[in-house]
Amino acid sequence: MRNIGVDSVPLAAIVAAFIGAVTAFQTRYQLFGGVQLSVVGLISRQSIILELGPLLTGLVLTGRVGARITAEIGTMRVTEQIDALETLAYDPIGYLVVPRLLAAIIMVPMLTILANAIGVGTAFLTAILATDVSASAFSEGLRLAFSPFQIIYSIIKATIFGAAIAFFCSYEGYNTTAGAEGVGRSTAQAVVITSVAILVLDALTALLLAPYLQA
């Protein structure tokens, strides 16, 4: 959990901060005349909490955490450490995969919450400092038509992404073959597969849960 969660906070925060700033900035200058400026707050909140926060956190952690999981387990495989565990009657899945899976399921949502908060915060600062949107207008947009389910929706997505990262990366590492080269290949393959899987799961989650956002 330290490795997956705490050590990933700076990276997730930096990504979220820049995403929030760019979202607010782009939204402001995409508005046509006559639209009230509180829309910037509304679109920033919806974009970051519902989509960009969990998705980008998941993709970033795929590169940072998933690759590490695959490399660790893959190395254990090619150096026959997993075989040794099996020889000692340890269940390698329970010993190596399950803790990482639980850590990812718990910590990725936490990181996503922090990323959402940082993203919305930087969007707020960017909007009031770099554009003509006032703090009250942005706050009004932030609170417009908000329902707590939006936070839950974001957490559900992050939980699914965390599980996907741990599962696919552990699987690739666990099935690594052919020495050091195989570890590198498995790591790259794990990152690609997990990234695609996150995007597919993101679309499926949106299809299943987005109707409840309108309630």
């Binding site: 969660g5 906070v9 718990i106 910590m107 949502p109 990181l111 919450i113 922090l114 908060a117």
Partner: peptide, 9 residues
């Protein structure tokens, strides 16, 4: 980190 995330949420 977890406490901070929960409080923020």
């Amino acid at each position: 980190v977890m406490a901070l995330a929960i409080i923020v949420a």
